[in-house]
Design a protein around this nucleic acid. Sequence first.
DNA 1: ATGTATGCAAACCATTTGCAATGAC
DNA 2: GTCATTGCAAATGGTTTGCATACAT
Lengths: 158, 158
Amino acid sequence: METKKYIELQECFSSYLSKKGLRRTEERFAILECICDLKGHFDVYVLHRKMEEANYHVSRATVYNTIEVLVECGLVVRHQFPVSSQQYELRAYAETHSHLICMQCGAVRELKNEALQKSIVSMQIPRFTSVYHALYIYGLCQKCSRLQAGKKSKNINE
Amino acid sequence: METKKYIELQECFSSYLSKKGLRRTEERFAILECICDLKGHFDVYVLHRKMEEANYHVSRATVYNTIEVLVECGLVVRHQFPVSSQQYELRAYAETHSHLICMQCGAVRELKNEALQKSIVSMQIPRFTSVYHALYIYGLCQKCSRLQAGKKSKNINE
DNA sequence: ATGTATGCAAACCATTTGCAATGAC
DNA sequence: GTCATTGCAAATGGTTTGCATACAT
């Protein structure tokens, strides 16, 4: 991420911390900086490892704490329901409601579609103040799609 | 869920099991039936408890195993990235890409919008075979929105 | 009869918690 | 100086695994 953008985020984080009466510690800014370098998706393990690799030691507890603050202030997005266990739903229900996620190999790819994003953002929702959204499209990536097609033609004789 | 719909799902599950050479056990159908009764979101804990309450005992391991099969055959949706740990992303990145999820209290509400769903489904995606999608809109529910507004007016004097 | 599926309990691992030491204010 | 934040290690809790038993095919 270009320096200018990082500084904006840093300032945003800094003013959020002040506003909330939270301390501006070296660790917190180091973690935000590391996240900026990671660019895409990450989990605590990856983030923590990256920081160790850069010879910047913070405890995992601090990483969790800082991420929490970053999520609260809206700089970081948590890609999950806000409960700890995995959530499921009958597909029949779920479908009545974009990352591209391959159901086979788990690869995650981003999809940009301005028109769609626009229509989501401009949607009027009663009794809800929307802040941001995430669209996940599940399916098969090109590679797995081909593999599956291969299997299918074999299975014709079953 | 009305009986007719459950039977359809049961048949779908049954034929999937046959096709894959998996056994059609009593437990597997009991679990699917219980999921149909649950209707909305659930986790393994809730599902397992519900079955115990109905005096139908299955081990948690079996619940996990069966859910896995149900996800594979597309009857059940897993509301998460296909990795075990929570995934994060800089909001600045995530935004370039509908459940209504309250960022404050975690309440999850469903939002239906046919036009939007239609435009998502009809979207042409290169090198990806889409199967289903999930749109999460994060923000504040009415209750928390009011609480926050209350706080803000207090904080004006900060 | 064969080998998959189940039940149980132990193992695993991401995340959280408790507490003493540190350091931002 | 005060008290939030950190680091460390232990605890927690959802999920997975190993293995003996049960049962669908």
